[in-house]
């Protein structure tokens, strides 16, 4: 306000800053608390984990590792991993690629950006593939593509549904066109699986973009997403620079996609297992009019 400029009589408030002592700093070890990026609430990591990484205050869905996802979705003790040993090479001799992969291996304890396996969801046998955005941004190279394709084939052999949780920045740049072709390879496998009557359920989690959203993530008989997940083909910045227009706030969120006809439903993480189990039950062969 302009009049405030002239209102100088008011005594200035003294400002104090709290400087934590070294001792109090050490009271809270690294990682014990976490801050929600959306509502800024600070909470115990343990409580957050217990709540399936969903913010206790605003319901924001934090990321999940493949293993956390597996534990939240697959019946305990039923999971058998597939193709655990499949590892990346450096087909383009891209400088530093394998070092980066190795670093992420150390960081995540995963061999690659995806976990595949056979397991049960409330007693229904399925083949599940779970991407991990913590490993090279969940990007898809030859190994991710091959593991997905093998998982689809395994679902076909077992005649059980194929479920994929996607979380990916897209194709892996360091493997060049071979990455692009994983879009083709996985889609070709899904087509054959689908033609034989196979059930495909895709669950898009934050983020699902680029070549992954433009291949298997969008090819489910049912396409679902978690609330607030970023889903899209081209990145927001690229689009804004190209069309020179500011995009709406909710652009490329799960809710935006639902409104634009791209999703069957947005499902809260807490309801995920129950809803998918219901769908699996609907597809259980041999239903009869009682």
């Amino acid at each position: 306000m302009i009049k405030d400029l002239f209102n100088k009589q008011k005594p200035k408030k003294k400002k104090y800053a709290t400087i934590p002592t070294e001792a109090s700093k050490q009271d809270v070890p690294e990682g014990i608390m976490q801050k929600c990026p959306k509502c800024k609430k600070i909470m115990y990591t343990k409580e957050l984990k217990k709540n399936l990484n969903v913010c206790l205050q605003c319901g924001h869905h934090h990321g999940m590792t493949s293993l956390e996802r597996r534990d939240s979705f697959i019946d305990e003790g039923t999971f058998q991993e597939l193709d655990a040993a499949l590892s990346s090479t450096n087909p383009l001799n891209f400088p530093g690629y394998l070092e980066k992969v190795e670093a992420d291996r150390q960081k995540t304890g995963m061999n690659e950006a995806i976990l595949t396996g056979v397991g049960q969801v409330e007693g229904h046998e399925v083949v599940v593939a779970i991407m991990d955005a913590n490993f090279r941004m969940g990007s898809m190279g030859s190994v991710v593509g091959e593991k997905i394709t093998r998982a689809i084939e395994e679902a076909g052999r077992r005649n059980v549904p194929f479920i994929i949780f996607t979380a990916s920045g897209g194709a892996r740049m360091q493997e060049g066109v071979l990455s692009l072709m994983q879009m083709a390879k996985t889609s070709v496998a899904l087509k054959r699986f689908s033609e034989n009557g196979g059930l495909i359920i895709s669950i898009m989690t934050h983020p699902t973009t680029g070549g992954v959203s433009a291949s298997f993530a969008s090819l489910g008989d049912y396409n679902f997403a978690e609330p607030g997940a970023l889903i899209g083909f081209a990145g927001r910045r690229i689009i804004e620079q190209t069309i020179r227009e500011k995009l709406p706030e909710d652009f490329q969120t799960a809710e935006f996609l639902l409104k634009h006809g791209q999703l069957d439903a947005v499902i809260h993480r807490h309801d995920m297992k129950e809803k998918i189990a219901f769908l699996l039950d609907i597809h259980e062969p041999g239903g009869e009019l009682a």
Binding site: H260, G261, A265, K275, L279, E288
Partner: peptide, 29 residues
């Protein structure tokens, strides 16, 4: 029993003037 609504035409939008989904009718999907 157990109706699950499914949305969208995968092309343009989700028209709320039509609803649809999967459900069980006397046990039959």
């Amino acid at each position: 029993t157990d109706f699950m609504e499914l949305h969208g035409d995968r092309l343009f939008g989700d028209d709320a003037a039509i609803v649809g989904g999967v459900a069980k009718y006397h046990g039959l999907p």
